[in-house]
């Protein structure tokens, strides 16, 4: 089972990782895993478990291009992020790192702290309350990047960008 971590609207990358906690600023870059939501939600990093689900309102990840924001979420093993709208740089960064992002509004459907089972491949969430939630399927090129493990393994495997025709 996975825990639901509920966040509000317009969660920015300074909230996910303040600039002062960038790998650039750290003595040990692996410490990044200690700092997701360090100020915005201090109970997150000590309690998050691999596979847990972030559910948020619109414009999740707005602000900076800092890839270490989704990287920190990857380091703690976030299973997926579900929001009705993602800020575009965050979305690309998360896609590139292979973090599943589903575009849907579950802020009124799920509750913070609730236990759910998430099947990323099928895009299905089952709740302890007996709900079955089907997530909208992402475009095929995104699923291809996820299944390759991110854009770098994708590019190394295919020698091209998604949708690119190479002579």
């Amino acid at each position: 089972m996975a825990r639901v971590w509920m966040f509000g609207n317009d969660v920015n990358t300074d909230q996910i990782i303040p600039g002062r906690y960038a790998p650039y600023m750290l003595k040990n870059e692996h410490d990044l895993r200690k700092y997701p939501f360090v100020e915005a939600r201090p109970d997150f990093a000590p309690n998050v478990e691999p596979g847990d689900l972030i559910v948020a309102g619109p414009n999740f990840g707005c602000g900076s291009s800092r890839e270490y924001a989704p990287l920190a979420l990857k380091m703690v093993g976030i299973g997926a992020i579900v929001a009705p709208l993602f800020a575009r740089i965050f979305f690309r960064n998360a896609l590139n790192l292979g973090i599943p992002c589903f575009t849907a509004d579950l802020t009124q459907t799920l509750r913070d702290g609730e236990q759910v089972a998430l099947n990323v491949e099928q895009g299905v969430i089952l709740t302890e309350r007996g709900m079955r939630i089907e997530l909208p399927a992402p475009p095929s090129f995104m699923r291809e990047i996820w299944s390759a493990g991110g854009i770098v393994p994708y590019y190394r495997a295919y020698g091209r960008f998604p949708g690119e025709q190479r002579a």
Binding site: S65, R92, N93, N96, L97, I151, F161, E164
Partner: peptide
């Protein structure tokens, strides 16, 4: 346009982006 670490690395390596 702004991009993160991985996209910029890919653009710097290939001169292309999607």
């Amino acid at each position: 346009t702004g991009m993160g670490t991985t996209d910029i690395a890919l653009a710097a390596a290939t001169g292309r982006t999607w």
